[in-house]
Structure formats: structure tokens, C-alpha cells
Amino acid sequence: MLEITGLGGLILLALDIWAIVSVVGSATTTGKKVLWVLLILILPLLGFIIWLIAGPRPLRA
């Protein structure tokens, strides 16, 4: 059971890093970027889900 929990934590960490990189690369204001990053850092799972639904989208090249 410990291995499954550890794997889930690593997956969540990777998803949170991906979300933070996407927020930083988005076209929104700096203040909103800071709030989104704080939300993702303080509430990793819930913050990621909220970002996935309502978060700023990254700029497309």
C-alpha cells in the first residue's frame, strides 16, 4: 500500500509542476499568476482540480 501512495504523490507532484509552469506561461496578470501558484502550492490536489477547470490557459506559440 505504501508504494501506491508514494506513486500517487509523485504523480500529483508532476501534475502540480505542470500546472505551475502553465500558469507562469499564461497571458494573465502577475497578481493572478501569484494567486494561482499559491492555490496550487497550498492545496495541491484541490488547487490542481480548480486550475484544471477554471485556471488561465498558457500562451500558444
Score class of each variant (00 low, 15 high):
L43W: 12
A19K: 08
P56N: 02
P56D: 01
T28R: 05
T29W: 00
I42M: 09
K32E: 15
L59D: 07
M1Y: 12
D16N: 15
I40Y: 02
A61F: 13
V23D: 04
L59E: 13
L39K: 06
A54S: 09
I4R: 15
S26L: 03
L59V: 14
T30A: 04
T30Q: 04
L7H: 13
L46F: 13
V24K: 11
T29Y: 01
L2K: 11
L43V: 05
V37C: 09
I17N: 10
L35S: 06
L15P: 00
W18C: 10
L39Q: 03
R60P: 06
I17F: 13
A27G: 12
V21P: 00
W51F: 12
R57M: 05
G6L: 14
K32F: 06
L2A: 13
G31L: 01
A61Y: 13
L41M: 14
A14R: 08
L2E: 14
V21F: 10
D16T: 14
I42Y: 06
V21C: 11
M1R: 12
W51G: 01
A19C: 15
G6S: 11
L46V: 15
T5N: 10
D16R: 15
L52S: 07
E3H: 11
G55Y: 02
K32P: 00
V24M: 09
L35W: 07
I11Q: 11
I11C: 10
A14L: 13
A61H: 11
W18P: 00
I40L: 05
L2H: 05
L45P: 02
G9N: 14
A27I: 03
P58D: 06
L15K: 08
L43C: 09
T28S: 07
T28D: 05
G25Y: 08
W36R: 04
G9E: 14
W36I: 01
V34M: 04
L7N: 11
P58A: 10
R57E: 06
K32I: 11
L10N: 09
